[in-house]
């Protein structure tokens, strides 16, 4: 999922300080699962913003809506009839949802309530960590299912570096060394010999460096 967290309240207030009526829009997908922008968080943000405005002697009218997905044209249509009644939209979706919202409603100011952080999963309740950087050419088949691009602080394709200490990364003792994880798993798989193969220089053109990426599937296009 895409993992995000709420922006500091001050920053959100800064976006909407001159508004009287706002629409806070949550998203039922990733950000609901990571407790950042689902229905519950929409209600909490609405309450917090109302109080912050009240404290300054202003009343803020807030409408709360949570859509199935904000990265989907179809669901964004659901607010077409009401959106014009508001001065601004505060989107609690990831950066993708915020942009889809802004693209769809050209004349409506749309502000992000979240900082979108990474593609990851929940290690346990309340703990999320990154697993993929979307490089566009997956190398997990060569690295025992553990991604050094994401999990090594230097994204070394031929690690570990000299800073690996007792299984931890040199930049943070709470961070496992990705290459230690790879070696441990290669060993468990009885494939330690795979380590001896050099991973060649990577083509990063399918990653961010190559410019914004796009997929067109003609078989699905209408």
């Amino acid at each position: 999922m895409i993992v995000a967290e709420r922006k500091p309240l001050d920053e959100i207030i800064g976006f909407i300080k001159d508004c009287k009526k706002i629409l806070i829009v949550g998203c039922n997908e990733c950000v609901t699962v990571c407790y950042a922008g689902g229905k519950k968080e929409v209600a909490i943000l609405a309450s917090a913003l109302k109080m912050a405005f009240l404290k300054e002697g202003k009343e803020l009218e807030v409408k709360e809506v949570t859509l199935e997905r904000q990265c989907d044209q179809e669901y964004l249509e659901e607010i077409r009839d009401i959106i014009d009644q508001y001065d601004a939209v505060v989107s609690m979706a990831c950066g993708v949802g915020v942009q889809f919202m802004a693209e769809k409603y050209q004349s409506m100011p749309v502000y992000p309530a979240l900082n979108t952080l990474f593609m990851g999963g929940a290690e346990e309740m309340g703990v999320w960590s990154e697993r993929c950087q979307g490089c566009g050419q997956c190398i997990l088949g060569q690295t025992a299912g553990i991604c050094p691009i994401t999990r090594c602080a230097k994204r070394l394709l031929n690690g570990p570096c000299g800073g690996s200490t007792q299984g931890h990364c040199e930049i943070n003792k709470d961070l496992p060394c990705a290459w230690q994880l790879i070696l441990d798993r290669l060993k468990a798989l009885g494939r330690l010999d795979d380590y001896d193969r050099l991973i060649s220089i990577k083509d990063w053109s399918t990653e961010r460096s190559g410019g914004p990426r796009k997929i067109v599937r003609e078989d699905l296009q209408q």
């Binding site: 570990p160 000299g162 800073g163 690996s164 200490t165 299984g167 060394c177 070696l183 380590y195 001896d196």
Partner: peptide, 14 residues
């Protein structure tokens, strides 16, 4: 001297 020690020689081989 870095960890894991057991692959340090193999790493040099690489």
């Amino acid at each position: 001297f870095a960890d894991p020690f057991e692959i340090r020689a193999r790493r040099l081989a690489k």
